[in-house]
């Protein structure tokens, strides 16, 4: 219909497959996020540590280059599971901060502007909405956690040879699985907080509070009640415990049993899902 013909015309063309429609949301959400210069700068900052790790791996395999600068190769950290565990913990903190920046802008504008009814009056379910919004975080957080981690692993494998890769392939597995667990936890917390708190800054602060304040609360609980289970409230510690087990580190399970940590993470995810689906509705019913 040409614009000068201002009469209503129906649509008779083809429709897109229903399963693919949740991918529409990340496209528009990312389009609304990236005009923020601060976010772009922060995202760039997230790659500094992986870039430093890549340089480190390269140098550790070029001893002749090190000798020019009179540096002893023995002083260099060995590239092993511990190296990648440290990488994961650093990037997990960056991912938490990135979540606090991105997360509040995902659901809260739709809730604040009563726009949820417009999504759900279409052939588009609450599950698809949550999946679409979550995929924004999954994509961005993957970009700063397991994707560079896997690249580092491949750099190390290419420099150390096939034998190293054959002996350490499980490290790659640990990087991906450990990072994905953390990404899912962060995404669910961010979406749940973003759905319940309409003010973006408050939602961001709450996301960080849930992630980091759990440590202090858990320790206080341990001290007052003289228990050990308070540590389970520290989601970061729970994840680190799981990663220690995934990276087969000797200290794994010292503070917290990996199974307990997994249970705590699963419980946190379930609570977030409940909070999310309680709030993501086309309208609120006042009973």
């Amino acid at each position: 219909m040409a614009v000068y013909k201002r009469t209503y015309q129906g649509y008779s063309g083809a429709a897109t497959p229903a399963w693919s429609r949740f991918l529409i949301l990340p496209r528009y959400s990312l389009g609304r996020l990236f005009p923020s210069k601060f976010l772009v700068l922060f995202l760039m900052a997230c790659f500094f540590y992986p870039a430093g790790c890549a340089v480190f791996i390269y140098l550790s395999h070029h001893l002749s280059f090190l000798r020019v600068f009179n540096i002893q190769a023995a002083n260099f950290l060995e590239i092993n599971a511990n190296f990648f565990y440290i990488y994961c913990t650093v990037q997990a903190t960056m991912a938490s901060l990135l979540t606090a920046l991105v997360g509040p802008g995902l659901v809260s504008p739709d809730v604040a502007n009563h726009a949820l009814a417009l999504y759900f009056c279409r052939p588009f379910s609450r599950f698809e909405y949550a999946a679409g919004k979550m995929s924004v975080l999954i994509g961005l957080l993957s970009l700063v956690t397991w994707i560079p981690g896997l690249i580092l692993f491949l750099i190390q494998a290419s420099l150390a040879g096939r034998s190293w890769m054959a002996a350490n392939w499980w490290i790659a597995q640990a990087i991906v699985v450990g990072s994905l667990i953390w990404i899912v936890v962060l995404s669910l917390i961010a979406l749940a907080m973003s759905a319940w708190v309409k003010w973006r800054i408050a939602a961001g602060a709450l996301i960080l509070g849930v992630i980091f304040a759990g440590a202090g609360f858990g320790r206080a609980l341990n001290a007052v009640l003289r228990i050990r289970g308070g540590t389970m409230l520290d989601l970061e510690q729970d994840s680190f415990t799981l990663w220690s087990a995934l990276f087969r580190l000797p200290g794994a399970g010292r503070d917290l049993d990996p199974l307990e940590a997994a249970n705590a993470i699963a419980a946190a995810c379930l609570v977030c899902l409940w909070l999310l689906f309680k709030k993501i509705r086309p309208f609120e019913v006042v009973k």
């Binding site: 649509y11 063309g13 083809a14 429709a15 897109t16 229903a18 429609r21 529409i24 528009y28 417009l118 999504y119 279409r122 052939p123 588009f124």
Partner: peptide, 9 residues
């Protein structure tokens, strides 16, 4: 966006 969510390419 609303059109796309309704199934329009």
């Amino acid at each position: 966006m609303m059109g796309e969510l309704s199934g329009l390419p």
